[in-house]
Simulated scan of single mutants.
Amino acid sequence: MTDTFKRLEGASLDSRYPLGEILDAIRFNDDGLIPAIAQQHDSGEVLMMAWMNREALEETLATGRVCYWSRSKGKLWRKGESSGQQQHLRSAALDCDGDTLLMQVDQTGPACHSGRRSCFYVSLEGEDARITSAPLIDPEALYGKR
């Protein structure tokens, strides 16, 4: 844990710190990434987890439109740029270690590339895995044939 986040443990309610100082203290992994969890702001539904580098996080904070780092494409990925299913940031918070980001978002349509509202639709139940939701939109309608 960085000294910054250790110091924040004792911070009083409504203390303020320069954003740059906090961004400098984030514990990005060896690839320069941090896990970013997107949660629907009004329902609490966990929609997805993706990765952000510092540039994606700064863009998200500056524009209010959620931007991730695509590990498969090796570039910034603005949620909804091909599907139209955007995420708009309502708030963002780091965990106590500065190594995970939780974002409250307003999601347009499905968050998952499968066309489902949430990426978390495979429930592990005893000896089985059960699909808990159907696609809201056919993925081919969102992205075309892959």
Rank of each mutant, 00 (worst) to 15 (best):
N53I: 00
A93E: 13
W69C: 05
K79A: 00
M52D: 04
S70H: 02
R54Q: 06
G44S: 08
S70F: 02
D31K: 15
E125Q: 15
R54N: 04
G144R: 07
L142F: 00
P139I: 08
D97Y: 10
G84Y: 02
Q85P: 08
S83R: 00
F120N: 03
R71Y: 01
R146H: 12
S43Q: 00
A141C: 10
D14W: 15
D24A: 11
H113G: 06
D138Y: 03
K6R: 15
R117F: 09
I26T: 05
L124A: 12
D31P: 05
A129R: 12
P35R: 10
Y143L: 13
F28A: 02
L94F: 14
D42S: 14
L136N: 07
M103R: 02
A92Y: 01
E58V: 14
Q85W: 07
Q87K: 01
D14N: 12
G20M: 13
L136R: 10
G144Y: 00
E21S: 12
L23I: 13
Q39L: 09
I26H: 04
E59D: 11
M103I: 04
G98W: 05
L57F: 01
I137A: 06
V122Y: 14
G32H: 06
L33F: 03
R54V: 03
R54C: 02
A62E: 14
Q87C: 04
P18R: 14
I26S: 03
N29Q: 09
G32W: 07
A92E: 04
E127V: 09
S91D: 10
G109V: 07
L23T: 06
H113F: 02
G109P: 05
P139T: 09
I137T: 13
I34C: 13
R16I: 12
W77R: 00
S82A: 11
N29I: 04
T63E: 09
A111M: 11
I22H: 05
L61Q: 05
G64M: 03
S133F: 04
I26D: 00
Q85I: 08
R117T: 03
L94M: 13
S114R: 15
R117K: 15
P139H: 06
S118K: 01
P135E: 08
L136A: 11
Y121V: 02
M48N: 05
G115L: 03
H41F: 14
D30Q: 14
Y143G: 00
D14A: 11
P110G: 02
S12V: 13
D106W: 15
I37A: 08
A134C: 09
K145R: 15
T100I: 13
M103Q: 00
R7Q: 12
M48K: 01
C67N: 13
A56Y: 04
D106M: 15
L142S: 08
D97S: 08
A25S: 11
R90E: 13
E81H: 07
L13R: 15
T4K: 15
L13G: 09
G32F: 10
A50D: 01
G115V: 02
